[in-house]
């Protein structure tokens, strides 16, 4: 469904040029949920921004359904691929009601039947009609992230790109949003690419994942490898140990991977 090959991204020019993504490649099957893991600055979000078309100066090959993507995207692409962002406080227009936010994509794509679509999609994300005419500031963080998911779903996409969808939320709310995302994927047979810094979240959601460090691919592993600890790369092992909590002896052995 999605194929990325030799993806390279540079930011800046001359002396300050930053090679943010270096020869990254992976494939995602239809209906699969694929994880991108790494620390800040590893280029995981940049990869997602290239696929979604938010970044245009990438080099390499990105294919969706066998069709090679160019730098600019058309309307049909937007109906197929949608994105959910990290920060539910920043990704919704503060002076638009939920209803207006959700109707905007319907209007842009001239799909019609906006009222029913909004009602249906709000039901899908478990919010219901009473939230429809509220403003974002009248919702909690978890509810806002549900609205962000609803906004992505309203165009009936096949692929959803999730950029740290739960890292701004409390753990109890994170569980609810993760459950919701799992349910929607199973119900609508969606394909996910999930970016996260949290190995536990990715292992809960995805069967395969790509570990990135400083723009480079460290390795592509399966969830079972992660569970059994059959990992060859030291970087991944270190991430795994770090996720388990404070352990003084383990920390002294941490290395800086460059």
């Amino acid at each position: 469904m999605i194929a990325v090959e030799n993806l390279n991204v540079f930011f800046g020019h001359g002396q300050t040029r930053n090679h943010a993504v270096k020869d990254v490649g992976f494939t995602v099957e239809k209906g699969e949920s694929f994880g991108l893991v790494g620390e800040s600055g590893s280029g995981k979000s940049t990869v997602l921004n290239c696929i979604s078309g938010l970044l245009t100066h990438w080099k390499g090959r990105i294919e969706i359904d066998g069709v090679r993507l160019m730098q600019t995207r058309n309307m049909a692409f937007c109906r197929k691929v949608q994105m959910v962002f990290q920060d539910p406080y920043g990704s919704l227009h503060p002076r638009h009601t939920i209803d207006r936010t959700l109707k905007e994509p319907v209007k842009i794509h001239r799909l019609g039947d906006a009222n029913n679509r909004v009602a249906r999609v709000l039901d899908d994300v478990g919010l219901g009609a009473k939230f429809r005419f509220r403003f974002p500031h009248q919702l909690s963080g978890g509810q806002r992230q549900r609205v962000a998911v609803a906004r992505a779903l309203i165009l009936d996409p096949e692929i959803i790109l999730l950029d740290e969808p739960t890292s701004a939320l409390d753990v109890s709310i994170q569980a609810e949003v993760l459950n919701l995302l799992q349910d929607i994927r199973r119900e609508k047979n969606l394909t996910y690419i999930l970016v996260s810094h949290d190995l536990a979240v990715v292992s809960h959601m995805c069967n395969r994942l790509l570990v990135m460090n400083r723009g480079k691919t460290v390795e592509t592993i399966t969830r079972n490898q992660l569970k059994s600890g059959a990992i060859s790369e030291k970087y991944t092992t270190q991430l795994l140990v770090a996720g388990k909590g404070y352990d003084r002896t383990a920390i002294d052995q941490f290395q800086d991977f460059r």
Binding site: N179, A200, H204, G243
Partner: peptide, 20 residues
């Protein structure tokens, strides 16, 4: 208990997480 159980775990299943 609720807070602890709603954390996703690497060696857990992919079933629904218990919510608080």
């Amino acid at each position: 208990k609720g807070l602890l159980s709603c954390l996703p775990k690497i060696d857990g299943t992919q079933d629904h997480l218990p919510t608080l």
